[in-house]
Amino acid sequence: MTDAATVGVLCFPGSNCEHDVVAALEGLGAAARIVWHSDSDLSGFGGLVVPGGFAHGDYLRPGAIARFSPAMGALSSFAERGGPVLGICNGFQVLTEAGLLPGALMRNAGMRFVCTTVECEVVSSSSVLTAAVPTGTVLRLPVNHYEGNYTVNAEGLAELERNGQVVLRYRDNPNGSTGNIAGVANRAGNVVGLMPHPERASSALLGSADGLRLLESFLAAVANGAGASRAPRVAS
């Protein structure tokens, strides 16, 4: 994947997984660069990742303040054009607060911070994160969060199921998430959020390399030019 477009990895005050994401993507032969949250120009990137951490200290609610950062406006426009966007852990919380993904992430049902490796099943291939991974594949991925309890009402859940927007499910629910949901996509499938950290499951030495399968799928979407090249051009 030598000609893959560059992936932008957003960094907010309090983000802490941006370097891990860059390392995992570079390990797959992609180019990735960290972008500070006050940068409102994200042109030139073929894909965007909102990494884990505690953006703006998680004050008020995780992701509540981060969504007002200038980079988020540019990210929303990129997502609207069909560009591949991935939110991991705190990044997932940011994308739900920004309204780019349905639902919300609440405090874990057991009132415990969970830090372990879980098994997740790929249940839909209609997203940029899972397009290249067969449905039914079980992946071992680390989770590391206090507010990962995915919450959506009954109608919302039915709609997600109907549209194939539930992309990953926990086999043994660690946090009380509705429908054992570990990851969801938007209706178009180009915006995906998940609580597990695929970038940390990037080497057998780290306990699992299963996360690479998801990141490879994401990079394939980036290389295909989903978004940027298909953006409607306005003649000037």
Partner: peptide, 11 residues
């Protein structure tokens, strides 16, 4: 209403 509140349950 209807949204689980683990903090409240614990208290």
């Amino acid at each position: 209403e209807g949204i689980a509140n683990p903090e409240g349950l614990t208290i």
